[in-house]
Amino acid sequence: MEVFKKTNGLTDAPFHYCPGCTHGIIHRLVAEVLEELGVLDRSIAIASVGCSVFSYNYFNCDAIQAAHGRAPAVATGAKRSMPDNIVFTYQGDGDLAAIGTAETVHAAARNENITVIFVNNAIYGMTGGQMAPTSLPNQVTQTSPYGRDVTLVGYPIKVSEMLSQVEGATYIERVAVDNVKNIKNAKKAIKKAFQNQIDKKGFSLIEVLSTCPTNWGKSPKDSLLWLEENMKKNYPLGVFKDRTKGDE
């Protein structure tokens, strides 16, 4: 008996991600959930801009490639057009928390019945490691070579905390994929976010703390440690909003 095999929720195209980048794990969790919930054949993935731009090659369902930051707006159109389909966005922190802030906040405010998978690795990966809206104070990046100076460029945006204040949003949780236990919890959260959509409960966003070994300048193993020691301090894990409580 196979206890672990590749999900049918992914195509067999090899990921283009760097060695040790946890995007691959998050892709797999989303894909497994789509397969397990039996919604793969009615799912529409909205790919964003950044490292995950090619996610339309990997999710084994229909897909639309959106402009930078616009995935929640594209998802809104697709979902309003096809309310019985499962529509989700897969976005990084640059895409969602900088250029796409308005689209994200307003999709949440409308309680748009979509699922947002938000991958936070505190850096712009695809363009080579620039400061992201989520980069940590003092974090060295290509565009903060002396460390993020909060007096000059401000503080990181805590997306889950921010969206927990948006009245319309249904479900907001932050998870991480730095160890097996957390990966399993992340999958549970992602499953809940999709189940919410199936149950027509509205906007769910799962923020997933992820690594970027290449642009962090660390080995894959050290990246996991850096996530544990630094990311989680700034971005504590947990459920930030749950309007489905009491529904069960």
Partner: peptide, 19 residues
């Protein structure tokens, strides 16, 4: 022991585990 922790942690779908 077939815990599949390795496969769960693999970002590149390299590993299959059977029991």
């Amino acid at each position: 022991i077939g815990c599949a922790f390795c496969a769960t942690s693999c970002p590149d779908l390299v590993i299959t585990v059977e029991k």
